[in-house]
């Protein structure tokens, strides 16, 4: 695929917007359709697209395996950590009301971090799965 000029140029343009769109979906999720799950899938799809066009090694350079593996675990820990933070501040587990000065503010903060955790885990898992499947095709991968 390395030699198709049109594909490469278009891909470079598209990927920029895909990542941008993923971030928009993530942070605008409170007001429009969107949230951590969708944003995670879209950003993973952007990297997968990059991997298809430029080859798996190039994608591995942009998002290294180590980082992906850390992302998988970090997302779940972040989510659980928000729960524990609520606990430490004197509320129940996953209780956001105590996170901010007033309840609504606390809810906002809680939802933001929860969605962040979801985004990180989902994107990490999708990418890792793609790497594993694609990597085996080239005789052993890593």
């Amino acid at each position: 695929m390395r030699n198709y000029l049109v594909l490469r140029v278009i891909a470079k343009l598209m990927i920029m917007f895909m990542v941008l769109f993923a971030l928009y979906v993530q942070f605008h999720g409170d007001f429009g359709p969107g949230g951590g799950f969708q944003a995670g899938v879209i950003s993973a799809a952007a990297i997968v697209f990059y991997g298809i066009i430029f080859g798996l090694p190039a994608a591995r350079e942009v998002v290294p395996d180590r980082l992906v593996e850390v992302m998988i675990a970090a997302g779940v820990l972040l989510y659980a950590g928000v729960g524990v933070a609520g606990l430490l501040l004197g509320g129940n587990y996953l209780d956001y009301f105590v996170l901010g000065a007033d309840p609504v503010d606390g809810q906002h903060r809680g939802i933001f971090w929860i969605e962040m955790g979801v985004l990180i885990t989902v994107a990490g898992v999708m990418l890792k799965i793609f790497y594993m499947f694609a990597g085996r095709g080239d005789g052993g991968g890593e």
Partner: peptide
């Protein structure tokens, strides 16, 4: 259903891994 879809694709990947 939103969560079910994402979980669905994750388990689908697990199934495909077993097929491989």
């Amino acid at each position: 259903i939103l969560t079910a879809i994402v979980v669905g694709v994750a388990t689908l990947a697990l199934g495909l891994a077993i097929v491989v």
